[in-house]
Each structure stands twice: as C-alpha cells, then as structure tokens.
Design a protein around this nucleic acid. Structure first.
Lengths: 209, 209
DNA sequence: CAAAGTTAATCAAACGATTGATTAAAGTAA
DNA sequence: TTACTTTAATCAATCGTTTGATTAACTTTG
C-alpha cells in the first residue's frame, strides 16, 4: 500500500543521511548507500533520479522542520532579551543535538563551498536563525539589558561553533567530555543538559554588566 | 638542483593542501591536483607514492610546526593561570588563523572518522594542546583564581569551536562579521584581533568570580 | 467470475566515464 | 655514459547511471 512506499523512501533517506555524514558526498558511493539500505542500486535513481537528487532529498526532508524553530521567539516584546536567549538555547539544544547526524552533514556541505543552489538554500535557512539571534541580542543591548560593547557576531559564532565542535569531531570531544557522545542515551541524559547549562552560564557571564 | 626538487614538492603540497581542503579527500582527484599544480599526474605517485601518501605528506609537513605551539606555557608556575590563558589565545590565534586552509582540512579529516593511522596521529597531536589547556584551567581552579564550578571541557570546546565555525564555514561567518574573511589582509587586520579580543573577554567573564 | 491489460516496484547485468596507479620511452643534468 | 625527471599512454577498478526483464497488485474487459 501507499504507506509502505513512503516508509521505504524514508528508510533510504535515513541511511543516506547517515552514510553521507560519515563518508562525505564523494566518499559515499551509491553502491554503499543502497547496500546499507538493503535495496537494489537502481532504486536510488528510480526514486530520486540521481545521486544529487538523493542528496538534495536528504536535505529537503529536514529543512521544513528547521526553518520554523524560532517562530515563537523574538516577536513577544513582553519578555526580556535574556529569557529569549534562554528559550533559544533550550529549543536549539533539543532540536539540533537530536539531529546530530544531519547537523554534521549540514555543516560539512556548508564548509565545502560548492556553487550549488543547495548551498544557497542551506545558507539562507541557517541565516534565518542567525539573524533572529542577532535581533534578540541587539534588542538586549538597546534596552540596556546587556552590555553595549558585546560582540554580537562572535557570540553567535560561539553558540553554533561550540555545538559543532562537539558533535562534528567526537574523536576530540569524547576524551574531553569523558563519555560516549555517539550513544543516544548519553546525548540525552548528559550532553544535552551540559551544553544547555554551560551555554547559559557562559553567556550570562559575558552579556551582563 | 636539489633546491628545485624541494621547491617543486613543496609547491605540490601547497596546491594539494588547498584542493583537499576545498573538495575533500575523495572529491579531490589526482588529475585535478596535478593539473592545478602544473605537473604531470604521474609526478604525484613518483614523489609521494600514492594519493594517500600525498595526503599524509600534506599533514606531516605541518604537524611539526603545530605540536610545539605550547612548549613554553604551563611549565612556568610563576605566572598566573589567566595570563597563561591569554598567552595561549594569542599564540593560538596567530598560528591557527594563519593556517586556516590547513585547519579546515584538519578538522574535516577529524570529523570523517576513518580508522586510519593518520586520524589517530592527528587526534594525538591536537589532544596535546587540549590537555595543556586542560592543565592550565585546572591549575587556575586549584589556586582559587578561577571559579571552581567552571566546565573545563566546554571551555575548550568553545575556544576551538568558535574559531572552527568562522574559518570552516565562511559562507555563514561572512554575513555575520560583515567583511571578507577569505582575504588574507582582512584576516590579519580584523579577524585575528577580533577573535583574540572576544575570546579573552568571553573567558574573563566566565572564569572569574 | 475469470482472462487480459495496466501499472509501479524491483532486480541483475551492463554501460560509458572517471578514478588512482603503472608503464616504457623520452628528456635532462652531472 | 649514468642517474634522475618528466611525459604520454595505458591499466584494472570503481564510479553513477541505464537497461530490459520480472514480479506483484490492481483494473478493465468479456
């Protein structure tokens, strides 16, 4: 029935997302992806047209769930900029750390600067969140809540950079943190709270007078 | 003469380092590298044995200059932990931002977790600097200079992560910072001072009571 | 009802192109 | 000469993709 078809395409996308994130676009052959997904090689082209189409589909599936991460923030003028920052850290911590496999792939593709339409789409998507953060921080400066000499751009770079460093280079992060960050259980019970807590404390110390 | 040979090998390594960092290991074909270097394809195998050999050589050339970045820090008990941190940020800012092309390649390879000997070598190399930082921070905690509840691992992740975010994803960092971070002149005059200054202010706010 | 037709899904096999690597011959300098 | 470089041609292997055949599930027709 129809549900089975959707599930199979989704299964292929799951596997492709993981393999792409592990091996990179060029390192992930269609044979390897189809093999790990347990489907015939031709099914990739049948479903997605090409390897590029598959790659694109991996992103398109996730883009929708990311672009509205901040829909309810920054619009409500009644709460303080800092509490918005806290909300952002919470949302972003939950959403982003949960999809660490996709995040790795995402920034891998952003780093490798192809002139693709995909690259521009991804940049615009991420830039939305970034500018939202920018707005919150500047609002906090304007109303005297934060120090007026804070480096907004660098704060944002720190927020995303710290997370990326941990998730994208577990080989470094693991001996640092002292537990297995590839284990989903550990991510949920230890990594997520640790990142959230640290980020709040770090920014609280930096942003306020 | 001998000098020409060395220069030619060095030239190939320069080009290979750049192409590898732009396209990734799998995306950078030997034909492309040799083409951009202006040498025959067979020269790569003649000089470096194989593509893997060339890749390894790119790293080995730089490893030596990185492993002793902190030789004069952490041993001198007379200066404060904070001034050691400041020295570290200075050294690391100069060294690391200058080799941003290599840094991109480095963390690209660290992220893609191959079981290579190379991966382990690179991890050990980077881990040396990390543990040195760890030592400084714990020393600061022990002597009451820093707060005792700081998250050492996360501080280190922040230090490296923020830099990596900016250098490895210029597509995101450029609209954030507002200037061209691929321009060496801009890196020297604006990015380097900005990173150093921000990192000192950020950590100063977080580490102290 | 059953036979014929239609559709999408799946497969093994093969395609041309490109990959990293090798060869043998030509070139260069001591 | 002798030893080291460089070149074009070529190798087997792998790449992404296409093909034609087969299966299975519905629809239509008689």
């Amino acid at each position: 029935m129809d549900k089975d078809k959707i599930d199979k395409k989704d299964h292929i996308l799951d596997v492709a997302e993981r393999v792409f994130s592990e091996k990179g676009f060029d390192g992930a052959s269609t044979r390897l992806i189809s093999g790990e997904a347990g489907v015939n090689m031709a099914m990739l082209n049948y479903y997605f047209g090409s390897k590029d189409g598959l790659f694109l589909a991996v992103f398109q599936r996730k883009i929708a769930s990311f672009q509205d991460i901040l829909q309810n923030l920054g619009n409500d003028g009644s709460i303080s900029a800092w509490s918005k920052m806290e909300q952002y850290i919470e949302l972003y911590g939950d959403k982003v750390v949960a999809n660490n496999c996709f995040q790795k792939l995402l920034y891998q593709e952003m780093g490798m600067n192809r002139g693709n339409d995909l690259s521009h789409k991804l940049r615009d998507m991420l830039l939305k969140n970034v500018t939202e953060l920018d707005k919150i921080l500047n609002e906090g400066i304007a109303n005297g809540e934060f120090k007026k000499d804070i480096d907004v751009a660098m704060v944002i770079a720190t927020l995303y950079g710290t997370k990326n460093y941990i998730l994208n280079t577990p080989m470094m992060a693991e001996p640092l943190l002292g537990y297995d960050i590839t284990d989903d259980k550990m991510i949920e019970t230890r990594l997520k709270p640790q990142i959230k807590s640290f980020m709040k404390n770090l920014l609280k110390a930096y942003l306020f007078n």
